[in-house]
Write a protein that binds this DNA or RNA. Structure first.
Lengths: 197, 197
DNA sequence: CTCCTTCACGTCAGTGACTGTCATCCCTAC
DNA sequence: GTAGGGATGACAGTCACTGACGTGAAGGAG
């Protein structure tokens, strides 16, 4: 521990979320966030590359969980099956305590297009990382991209459902259900296409 | 036609793309773009909500093509089949002349994260519009979201392939191939899951 | 104990994206 | 010819973000 109180980034994140939820994202300046925890604007931008990023810090843990899931999945499965395994291992580590926090955070994001843009970008990066991990397993390019992108789509939809007020199931359970729905849908649609030689 | 030369937005777009391709996106100011066609910065921002948007104007035509495709698809098909029809009708209107332009534009986007973010956001909006169109056909919520998101994923991947230097097939052909790959992959993966009652 | 490096922060000045407001001017309609 | 509207210019202002430089405490080396 140095001269300054530790956990600066975390304090800034908490303060930012609170201010965003109260006044709104655009009505809150970076200076206000920083000063609300006794720091300056310059320090805020030393911890976060831009104002939006303060809400998206720590997503690298999620990326790691997915990539690890892909890397440690049993050999022999198809790309989608591997993604299914990664999906389960990544989502089952999601603590229940995070659900309420995620709801507040999402309500802020849902009210600002710029934040939605960043959220989509983070999901896209996640998909890209998963695709890389699949390629490292020897999956071919197109299949890796398709499987990764589909897996992240499933994750995004499942996360949205998990956040709902009436929802009680775990994120992992919801994810499994959504993935199954996608596979069943696609399987049903793939059959008529088989008439082409 | 008023006092001023028509096609202001188009001239700004062309000038912006040229400057972005030459100096780079961040090294080009909105003032420079505007003055390169004899206008002021203020006028630039009257035509485009922000600097990035100058590269993404006109995507509403694509959205319309997809939505129309969904709306006019023959009745009775599953959500994914309807999306497949919309995919074909939307991509078959893509003129070959646009390919070269798209390459240049994409090379600019690929060099700037902020532009990639906007691109993803546009694709997400497109998926959202397609999902709405599916729901209007009576498709249930989850299936509509999944099918729309998958369809846009396919479109995005196919577009990326269409842009490649060595690629000769039409966008519609590539799209059909990518969709088939996704469906076959999913169908193969759905079978082992069928062991659950 | 003293020096010295390092780290986290403060201060300051600057650029550029974006906005609100008001004036201007041409074209059209009447 | 006059009134209105639509597109633009001019101008001032806010805020996100950056680079350069200074500062004080913690921790290690001697």
């Amino acid at each position: 521990m140095g001269r300054w109180a530790p956990g600066t980034a975390e304090r800034l994140q908490r303060a930012a979320l609170e201010l965003f939820a109260t006044r709104g994202f655009e009505q809150t300046t970076a200076t206000e966030i920083a000063e609300s925890v006794g720091l300056t604007e310059r320090t805020f931008f030393r911890h976060f590359s831009d104002k939006r990023e303060v809400l998206f810090h720590g997503q690298n843990l999620l990326v790691q969980a997915f990539v690890d899931g892909v890397a440690t999945a049993p050999p022999g499965g198809s790309a989608i099956e591997v993604v299914g395994v990664a999906l389960q291992s990544a989502t089952s580590t999601f603590p229940e305590e995070r659900r309420q926090y995620s709801r507040l955070r999402q309500s802020v994001i849902d009210q600002n297009p710029a934040l939605q843009e960043r959220e989509r970008h983070k999901l896209a990066s996640l998909a890209s990382a998963v695709a890389d991990a699949l390629r490292a397993r020897g999956v071919d390019d197109l299949a890796a991209t398709l499987a990764a992108e589909s897996g992240i789509t499933v994750f995004g939809i499942a996360f949205g459902l998990w956040i709902r007020a009436s929802e009680r199931r775990s994120l992992a359970d919801i994810t499994a259900a959504v993935l199954r729905e996608l596979l069943d849908m696609a399987a049903a649609a793939a059959v008529p296409g088989a008439e082409r030689p």
